[in-house]
Design a protein around this nucleic acid. Structure first.
Length: 528
RNA sequence: GGCCCUAUCGUCUAGUGGCCUAGGACGUGGCCCUCUCAAGGCCAAAACUCGGGUUCGAAUCCCGAUAGGGUCACCA
């Protein structure tokens, strides 16, 4: 029979542990898996790696599911959507795994072992001291049921270990690293079933990948060294070998005295010593503060995707940054719409070295994407922030402010920089320093009455007319435009920064401007 | 410690023997624009880890060193 060139369906997976948060490095791995599946018209599977049966799996899983949904990384099989190769949680597959362990035992590819943790530890330490590979001596191996009984009579607990070959070479092809060869003799007899009957990751992983018909295992490089053990198991079980691609890990931002360690959410304090990382964090923190959010490093951390969702980033921008962390199309194309990524992604162009996470560059993608977003979409994005901050945003006003803000609006939460337009005239918050320097101090104090008069009489109340009137006002007093416009700005917004002064005036309208000036001047009057 | 992986500007990267006096992007510095803050425009500084080979010619191929990382003990 002629070997038919069969077209295998591409099936990839991402298998997070339910930890309660979605790590940005994990998203990068998931993205590459998702992109590869989408590019080849295959399926992307989400599977839950909860072999050590934690308590609140559902609760710890939710943030991960939310993150995927927010980013638009849809899965064809897995939690909430089901699928024909379930269950998609390892905790529900124990009998299945134990069956696999039994098969390995029956074939003589695994054995019962009764070494105590102390004994194992002592052997390993001795091996390290003698500069030998850390290979178990198999001293407490039970060959027969009688052996098992004997060990158990001693009060020992048995675990099952894989019986790794002691000679030959394990060779496999990795789509990013090429051919990898490792001598079997260096591979440890790894525990596949713990003494409490639960199974370990390597075993469960191999069984799941087979059950779910995973064609391409695309995962972080930390698993590269686990691959021979997994190959041993899957071949022992008679499973076909999937294709492998080990991605370089996402490294931490450059910090003084730091190497290229894996990005970790726990090390946020040291990342904050990196000025660029801190800028991004501070910007996000400002938004969270105005929202009255309690930002704990547990949830509010640029290493976690939740940060970007909370602050109001665009999923497309996050994805665009992430796709370039370890992959490139060429040396110059940087902007990719999600649809383009799906079309252009390839494993062959994944880089080999670890890539540092650069929050500031992610932010740059966000800025560009935000500027390009149609006003209506920005309005929809921004409105919930105003609501959460306690304002009543009227669509027309929001639209006007969003347009006036232009490129100042870098994330949705930035709308909270412009709440002066949504605040009631008698509830405007004035920055005392700004008032002291631009309103009550000299020469500004002497301009206020005149400026109020200008605003009261300028007709029409639009940008060019207002500008001309104020310029004339300044010229008449021998003043430059700058201090005068700043006085006006503080008078009606309470702040020294914002849109162009005349845009601000026009946006507010004559009534509100006069009301605000009267408000602050009346207040000053009352107190003096 | 054994085994495995990796190594181009501060960072992400292009580069697969001559097109490289090494290109792009973020960041940084300067200038311009300007009523503040942004944005924008222009310009600049900034890298092939080191040492040997192979070759007429090496960032690119080979060897070695160094550095970083991963993995190996009932985490995933």
């Amino acid at each position: 029979m002629a070997p038919e060139p069969r077209r295998m369906t591409v099936r990839t997976r991402f298998a997070p542990s339910p930890t309660g948060y979605l790590h940005i490095g994990g998203v990068r791995t998931a993205l590459f898996n998702w992109l590869f599946a989408r590019k080849h018209g295959g399926q992307f599977i989400l599977r839950i790696d909860d072999t050590d049966q934690q308590r609140n799996v559902a609760e710890a899983l939710q943030p991960i599911i939310d993150g995927f949904r927010w980013l638009g990384l849809d899965w064809d099989e897995g939690p909430e959507v089901g699928g024909p190769h379930g269950p998609y949680s390892q905790s529900q597959k124990l009998p299945r795994y134990q069956e696999a362990v039994r098969q390995l035992l029956d074939k003589g590819l695994a054995y019962w072992d009764y070494a105590t943790p102390e004994e194992t530890k002592a052997e390993m330490e001795a091996a390290e001291k003698e500069r030998r590979p850390k290979i178990y001596s198999r001293r407490w191996t039970a060959e027969t049921d009688a052996d098992r009984k004997r060990f158990e009579a001693e009060g020992r607990k048995g675990s099952v270990k894989a019986k790794m070959p002691r000679d030959g070479v394990c060779r496999f092809t990795d789509h990013v690293r090429g051919i990898v060869e490792v001598p079997w003799a260096g591979e440890q007899d790894t525990v596949i079933q713990r003494s409490d009957g639960s199974v370990t990751y390597n075993l469960a992983n191999v069984v799941d990948d087979f059950d779910m018909k995973i064609s391409h295992v695309i995962r972080a490089e930390e698993h590269l060294a686990n691959t021979p053990r997994q190959i041993f198991m899957l071949e022992g079980l008679g499973y076909p070998r999937p294709e492998y691609a080990h991605l370089p890990f996402v490294a931490e931002p450059p910090i003084k005295g730091g190497g290229k360690n894996k990005l970790s959410k726990r090390k946020i304090a040291s990342y904050l010593t990196n000025a660029e990382f801190k800028k991004v964090y501070d910007h996000g923190k400002a938004v969270a503060d105005r929202l009255g959010l309690r930002g704990t490093p547990e949830t509010f951390n640029p290493v976690l995707t939740d940060f970007y969702q909370t602050v109001g980033y665009l999923p497309a921008a996050v994805l665009n940054y992430l796709v370039l962390l370890g992959w490139s199309l060429d040396g110059s194309t940087e902007e990719f719409a999600v649809a383009q990524m799906k079309e252009l992604f390839s494993l062959e162009r994944v880089t080999k070295g670890a890539a540092s996470f650069d929050a500031k560059k992610l932010f740059a993608f966000q800025e560009r994407a935000m500027v390009a977003l149609p006003t209506a979409e920005k309005v929809a994005m921004v409105t919930p922030y105003l609501v959460r901050a306690g304002f009543t945003p009227y669509p027309a006003m929001v639209t006007a402010i969003v347009e006036a803000a232009g490129p100042r609006l870098k994330v949705a939460g930035d709308i909270l920089d412009y709440t002066e337009f949504f605040a009631a005239d008698d509830q405007l918050v004035y920055d005392p320093k700004a008032v002291a320097e631009n309103v009550t101090g000299e020469p500004a104090a002497g301009w206020v009455v005149g400026l109020r008069e200008v605003l009261a009489t300028t007709e029409p109340f639009d940008v060019p007319t207002l500008k001309a009137a104020v310029e004339a006002f300044a010229a008449a007093r021998g003043a430059k435009l700058k201090p005068v416009s700043q006085t006006l700005r503080v008078l009606v917004t309470g702040k020294e920064v914002g849109f162009g002064t005349f845009d601000t005036l026009a946006l507010l309208g004559r009534e509100r401007c006069l009301a605000r000036i009267d408000g602050i001047m009346g207040e000053k009057g009352d107190h003096s």
